[in-house]
Every structure is written in structure tokens, then in C-alpha cells.
Design a protein around this nucleic acid. Structure first.
Length: 191
DNA sequence: AGCACGATTAACT
DNA sequence: GTTAATCGTGCTC
């Protein structure tokens, strides 16, 4: 069952932690592609200097200022699409970056898209999972909570707090403290 | 100019 | 097996 807007309309760090263990689903051409979310990152507001909203509302970041539960998708380094889900109240710019999933349904399709890399490398990075699930800028602003959504999150269990590793966020080396060191990257520890 | 990355190298255990 | 360095790519500001 699809996570409702109320799930995303909360504190971003809480949403990032609780998304671990849930199932990201992509409907495409009548097929169901999905995977369990195993790594996320929180980006919180204009004061968070690692967040794109640090520069205020721009054409790119407008979606982050909108209702929670919508996809914030952007292109990084000219080739990697990044999937985020908008959080908090309408008007406050924040989102959770989905960094990794464990493939569940449609693995054959993912293998084809990813060029037959080893299965463990199918969706173990934000650009990789976007490629595997065919998530591009065309899904920017997509409402994950609407009826008929082709991208959404299903409740699939709860991660025990003891199973969650919190570390600094990835790839924000040039961001000043304290934001660089905030432990806002969350992942499920493997067994 | 500067990226919320990934594939490929090269150098190490 | 690992870590570190490099750079392509195109969009935002």
C-alpha cells in the first residue's frame, strides 16, 4: 500500500530514516520494477548549505518548495539522474535523496538497462538506480501520492533503529561545517 | 565555475 | 581485496 502524503509531510531526517526498508516502485510499460530502499540522505531547507535550496527558489528547486510526496529529479554531472522525494510542509524546501535500493521486481529489465553489470551493482548508487528504473527529468514533479502514480513508495516493513547506520552525506566535500559533517546519510546495515 | 556521480584506472594490502 | 585520483558530461546560476 502506497505511502500517503502525511508520511512525507514530516521532519526530513525522520522521513529519511523511515524510508529505509520500504519499497520503491516504478510502473513502466505495464511492468513493475521495484526494490527495497537501503540508503537515503536528508537535505533540509535553505540554511542547509548542502541542499540545492541554499540558493533559494530557482526554476530547478521550485518543486522542493511544493507539496511533500513529489519527486525532485535533477541531472548531475551531465549524465546521472538523481531521485529525491520532497518532504515537510508545503512551502518549506527539503527532500530525501534515494541513494540505493536492493532490487526486487523486474531485475531482468534492470540488468538490460544497466548493461549486465554484477547484480550487486545494479542499483547501489543514486545514478545507477535511476538508470535501472528509468527515472529521468520527465518525472520531475511527479506526485508519488496521486492515484495513477507511476512512481511511488509502498510500506514494506520497519527498519529497527539498531539496524540503521548514520554517517555524513556523500559528495559534499566543499560544503562548510557544520553541514559537511552532519550524519544525515542513513543506510541499513547488512546482516 | 561548479557540481548531492560513476567507470576506469593505478596504486597499494 | 581496498583506497585514491581522474574526468566526462550538460545544466544551473
Amino acid at each position: 500500500m502506497k505511502l500517503p502524503r502525511a508520511f512525507f509531510a514530516r521532519d526530513t531526517v525522520t522521513v529519511a530514516r523511515e524510508l529505509l526498508g520500504q519499497r520503491l516502485v516504478r510502473l513502466e510499460a505495464g511492468r513493475r520494477l521495484s526494490g527495497i530502499i537501503i540508503e537515503t540522505e536528508a537535505y533540509v531547507g535553505e540554511t542547509d548549505l548542502a541542499c540545492h535550496a541554499r540558493a533559494g527558489r530557482t526554476p530547478r528547486t521550485t518543486v522542493m518548495y511544493g507539496p511533500p510526496g513529489c519527486a525532485y529529479v535533477y541531472l548531475n554531472y551531465g549524465l546521472h539522474w538523481m531521485l529525491n522525494i520532497v518532504t515537510e510542509r508545503n512551502g518549506f524546501p527539503a527532500a530525501v535523496l534515494i541513494r540505493a535500493i536492493e532490487p526486487m521486481e523486474g531485475v531482468e529489465v534492470m540488468r538490460r538497462r544497466r548493461g549486465h553489470v554484477p547484480d550487486r551493482q545494479l542499483t547501489n548508487g543514486p545514478g545507477k538506480l535511476a538508470q535501472a528504473l528509468h527515472i529521468t527529468g520527465s518525472l520531475h514533479g511527479h506526485d508519488l501520492c496521486a492515484r495513477g502514480a507511476v512512481l511511488f513508495v509502498e510500506r514494506a516493513g520497519n527498519a529497527a533503529p539498531s539496524a540503521i547506520l548514520a554517517r555524513p552525506r556523500i559528495g559534499i566535500h566543499s560544503v562548510p561545517e557544520p553541514w559537511r559533517s552532519l550524519a544525515w546519510n542513513f543506510r541499513l546495515s547488512r546482516e
